[in-house]
Design a protein around this nucleic acid. Structure first.
Length: 803
DNA sequence: AGCACGCCGACT
DNA sequence: GTCGGCGTGCTC
């Protein structure tokens, strides 16, 4: 009998290796690596991934696979191999790597139930249990726990009267519809019709339909046409005249939308120059990474589209990654408009079922292009011709929990396998990528002008300290206020960006300065107007706002900070006639609301669009002539070496929103630190100079791209334990790395406590440490054993957020 | 992760 | 004496 190596769905160090199982005879032909299977594991049944099929095993007592969960592999050879790479580079469990590559719908659901043991009668049970298990009923384990029957049930189980069953369930069912078709040609159906009883009028009508139409028809449709009930059809099926089949249908999230077909646009000289090296790489089937550095509005998307067209013409496939927040209908339309049904779209707004259906379209090769957020990089194509990452610098391409991968790295890894180009596009490339382009590791392609040759809008930087000196305590500078008013009079639109990170509203006592903190985490609670409550963003803790200060009993306790809600309120006071649309996590939570708000704004239903980061991208409305940034420097002071870079990128991005069409635009940036280079240079829209400055800083402080980083975080319920263990790790690391590496720590994490666990960390900066991965693995190994003492160690290779 | 097994304290 | 607490090791 053949043997399968299976990675089981148990995320633990000890089980992070293949387990061998016998393949049942019936499946020897069909079982392939990459399929999901249900296997016995100890007393349970769990899901696993077959990674290999072999003839021999070191283990003698092999169990048999219970059942396959797929008819075809869900992971192809390349993805299985990519999973190993992902495990190695991000130091995660194999099972996490495989699960990350599949839609969540394919993750197993487990159920544990108690039922009567086979061959036993209810009569053997104590009378109190007989009703529960009558008629072969099963009792869910959650019910068991609630009922408090555990000891009694255990006794019965020990006697062999009851048994515990484990079940593995699929998360989604494929959506099916009933399809009816005739089993005979029209002539024979006519003959059969004669034989029907005289009163079977409806059945006759149904058959009439099939004399006219021989094609299968959806039952629902048939019933409306004939105006009858399912029983009529059923009767005919039972008579053997018709047959009913279940047919799988896809949930199509774009079902009711018509996409206007667009033809390729003629390229400008600059675009032609940029696309030709990409086309050459495609032609030569050569792996190469291009950095397409082009200002907003320089026509990067058209280059993507035409490169993809070329790939499709060669019978290959394309993956396009777009940051989650810019996966707007506008963006999707451009791809659907050009490639129609050949496009699958993957983003978090879809339901689990819809995501699964999009994934299946890819798997069955029914589409040629996938446009999606980070995880779309794992699209199960097998003949990739190009991978495009738009807004390459976006931090959302780095996944922050296991597996902690960066989509850019995965893209390059996959592109190597398929010998195809990767195109990274950005108006403000990440320093890492630009540095690689400078070193000729990446091929730099530049688009320096906007398509319409419109100049970038003028940017004015306002020093808010001056405003304070002039007794203006409002969050709007006099300049911004007058410009807002001016746009209102001219019936033009404005966009206001509130850089909310690190500036969320908190509840503070105005008398004693007491700030309401989360009882579980060392962080202030955030005020939410909905329900007038305070919430912790880290552990989910919620509470009401105290009427009086818990410290000093003052009544002057109220929320502070400049949340979007507060800006909206203030706008209402100073510009009561302005119609404002607010966009933030609170107003865009529901599916489709994001889209609706933007549509309202485009339709001119508001004068001012106020929002957080999410409005910085993709907005391209002709009537926007003013962009205001309320507080440019809020994220500048975050404990993050990328904060300057992020500030520069955000300001540059949002500036690009104004004056993209006929009407000229203007940008106003308010700040308390106008002299900071990232603000000053964003105002001048000078990426190249910013790059130089920031690279200098990174070099001095030993940060990427000059050094690689690894962040080790240790958490424990007791502060001292966390400190002591971090200290040990630091010492061990120091003994293992070369003297070129820098190790910082132990230091308290920027959020020193989350969910009642203290967090300490150490940061490793290094240039070349071939042995580091092994050292880190050893640390993880060691601490996995100690995890029972409540110690948790997590390692983030190339972290993006140092928290 | 779950679960069984095993070794100690506090109870019918 | 036993029920049940949790520390330890195993799952092909």
């Amino acid at each position: 009998m053949k043997i399968a190596s299976v990675i089981v769905d148990v995320p633990a160090k000890q089980t992070d290796k293949p387990f061998d199982y016998l393949i049942p005879e019936d499946w020897t032909e069909t079982m392939q690596p990459g399929m999901r299977v249900i296997v016995p594991f100890g007393p349970r049944k769990i899901q696993g991934f077959v990674t290999e099929i072999k003839d021999k095993s070191e283990f003698k007592q092999l169990k048999e696979i219970i059942a396959p969960m797929d008819l075809e592999p869900v992971l192809n050879k390349e993805l299985l191999h990519l999973g190993e790479w992902l495990t190695e580079t991000s130091l995660c469990f194999k099972i996490f790597a495989y699960q990350a590559m599949l839609p969540a719908a394919l993750k197993a659901k487990y159920e544990k139930k108690v039922r009567l043991a086979p061959g036993k009668e209810v009569a053997v049970l104590p009378s109190s249990l007989q009703a529960i298990f009558a008629d072969n009923k099963k009792l869910e384990w959650e019910e068991v726990l609630k009922s408090g029957l555990v000891p009694l049930l255990q006794r019965e189980a020990a006697k062999g009267h009851l048994e515990v069953v484990y079940e593995v369930k699929e998360r989604v069912k494929k959506k099916q519809v009933k399809v009816i078709r005739p089993l005979f040609p029209p002539a024979e159906i006519k003959a059969e019709m004669e034989r029907l009883p005289a009163n079977a009028e409806k059945q006759r009508q149904v058959l009439d339909y099939f004399i006219e139409h021989q094609d299968p028809v959806e039952q629902k449709q048939l019933l409306t046409i004939v105006q009858t009930s399912p029983s009529t059809v059923k009767a005919l099926v039972e008579k053997g005249l018709l047959s009913e089949d279940e047919m799988e249908v896809y949930r199509d999230p774009f079902e009711n939308r018509v996409f206007e077909h667009t033809a390729p646009l003629p390229l400008t000289k600059a675009q032609t120059a940029a696309i030709s090296p990409i086309l050459k790489a495609i032609e030569a089937k050569r792996h190469e990474v291009f950095l397409l550095y082009g200002v907003t509005g320089s026509g990067k998307t058209e280059i993507y589209l035409q490169a993809i067209q070329d790939v499709i013409d060669k019978g290959k496939e394309a993956i396009v990654l777009v940051p989650e927040i810019s996966l707007t209908p506008q963006m999707v339309n451009r791809f659907k408009g050009r490639f129609g049904d050949l496009v699958a779209v993957m983003h978090s707004g879809l339901s689990a079922g819809e995501k699964y259906d999009e994934w299946r379209k890819i798997q069955r090769k029914e589409v040629k292009v996938v446009v999606g957020a980070r995880s779309a990089i794992f699209a199960p194509f097998e003949n990739i011709g190009i991978i495009i990452i738009d807004e390459e610098h976006e931090t959302s391409y780095k996944q922050e929990d296991m597996p902690r991968y960066h989509a850019r790295d995965v893209a390059i890894e996959r592109a190597k396998v398929y010998s195809c180009p990767v195109v990274l596009g950005s108006a403000t490339p990440s320093l890492e990528s630009f540095a690689r382009a400078q070193k000729k590791v990446y091929h730099l392609l530049t688009l320096s002008n906007r398509m319409n040759n419109k100049p970038l809008p003028p940017v004015e930087i306002i020093d808010m300290r001056e405003e304070l000196r002039a007794e203006n305590r409002s969050m709007f500078s006099r300049k911004l206020f007058s410009k807002l008013k001016d746009r209102l009079e001219k019936k033009q639109q404005s966009v206001l960006l509130l850089n909310k990170r690190g500036h969320s509203s908190f509840v503070m006592c105005r008398d004693c300065g007491y700030v309401v903190n989360c009882p579980n985490c060392d962080i202030s609670l955030t005020y939410h107007r909905a329900g007038n409550r305070m919430k912790c963003h880290y552990c989910g803790y919620e509470s009401n706002i105290p009427n009086v200060c818990p410290e000093c009993s003052s009544e002057y306790i109220r929320y502070f900070g400049t949340g979007t809600q507060k800006v909206e309120e203030e706008l209402g006071k100073i510009l009561p006639e302005a119609r404002v649309i607010r966009m933030d996590v609170d107003t865009t939570g529901r599916k489709g609301s994001h889209e609706k708000l933007l549509k309202d704004f485009r339709d001119g239903k508001a004068d001012i669009l106020l929002g957080t980061q999410m409005i910085a991208k993709g907005l391209d409305f002709p009537n926007i002539t003013l962009v205001g940034v309320l507080s440019a420097d809020t994220m500048l002071h975050l404990p993050d070496f990328r904060s300057s870079e992020k500030t520069f990128q955000l300001l540059t991005q949002v500036s690009g929103r104004a004056g993209r069409h006929q009407l000229p635009g203007e940008v106003v940036i308010q700040t308390y630190t106008p002299e900071h280079y990232s603000i000053e240079l964003a105002g001048m829209q000078n990426y190249d100079y910013f790059y130089q400055r920031e690279m200098m800083m990174r070099k001095i402080h030993h940060y990427p791209p000059f050094y690689y980083l690894v962040l080790v975080t240790v958490t424990h319920e007791q502060l001292m334990k966390a400190v002591a263990e971090t200290e040990k790790i630091v010492n061990y690391l120091r003994s293992q790395v070369s003297n070129q590496a820098v190790i910082l720590g132990p230091a308290a994490s920027p959020i020193p406590r989350i969910n009642n666990r203290y967090r300490y960390q150490c940061l490793i900066k290094y240039k070349r440490e071939p042995n580091l991965t092994n050292v880190l693995k050893k640390i993880l190994d060691q601490y996995q054993k100690e995890a029972r003492n409540g110690l948790q160690v997590s390692i983030d290779v190339n972290p993006f957020i140092l928290m």
